[in-house]
Design a protein around this nucleic acid. Structure first.
Lengths: 107, 107
DNA sequence: TTCGTTAATCGTCGATAGACGATAATAGTG
DNA sequence: CACTATTATCGTCTATCGACGATTAACGAA
């Protein structure tokens, strides 16, 4: 159970910064690819934003795909499942499962 | 939206440590009050555990009630709702609501 | 190939987190 | 009141985070 907790803690740490939440919201609101627009949107230095993107990528929350000279970032919400499950366990001690059991392959 | 992100980041930070996750699991598995049993369970120094408990309490994730010479800690899962909502927004861009609709007003 | 654009990396700095032992503070008991 | 048990706080240390400027790497276009 310890490595699971470590994994969940890593995910939570990835979300534990307003700038990273902002980036995720930005990616959610922008279905297409955006590259350095993130830098302008969060109002931080380019290197700082790159570091935040690296952290999010390392946690698996986003994916980066090279698209010409820039990089297309996209959300990977499935990576957050362990964290979501943990929160769900805490918030719903009685009604454990509420959703469809496998939403992995939807398309 | 910024203060919301800060609040969510604070919640995520509270979960961003294996020892704190362990404490939360312990509280979930122990409906009754436990005090210093947490210290023995997590295997850290008493002062360190007290600090983790303080962080969790500051985030509102747990509550502490004085019960004689010891303190009864209890989960307060409702405090995690902003974080859970955020994750839900990311993970379910299309199917927004999947659960019981009466928990909060779904917006 | 050379240039311009974009992203990642490096080095550095200050601030914060995390751990510990030691020391208070609190509450019940004799 | 004195004593014990439990918890919180303090002081200190190391490690990590977060931000920045500067530099480097990768790629398309001229």
């Amino acid at each position: 159970m310890q490595d699971t907790d470590i994994e969940i803690a890593e995910l939570a740490k990835a979300l534990a910064h307003p700038a990273r939440l902002r980036i995720l919201r930005l990616l959610l609101a922008t279905p297409g690819c955006i590259g350095g627009d993130i830098v302008g949107a969060v109002g931080l230095a380019q290197s700082t934003v790159s570091e935040h993107l690296r952290i999010l990528k390392a946690a698996g929350v986003i994916t980066g795909e090279i698209s010409g000279p820039r990089i297309c970032y996209a959300l990977n919400p499935a990576a957050l499942e362990p964290l979501a499950d943990f929160i769900g366990t805490l918030t719903a001690p009685s009604a454990a499962v509420c959703c469809v059991p496998d939403e992995k392959e939807i398309s």
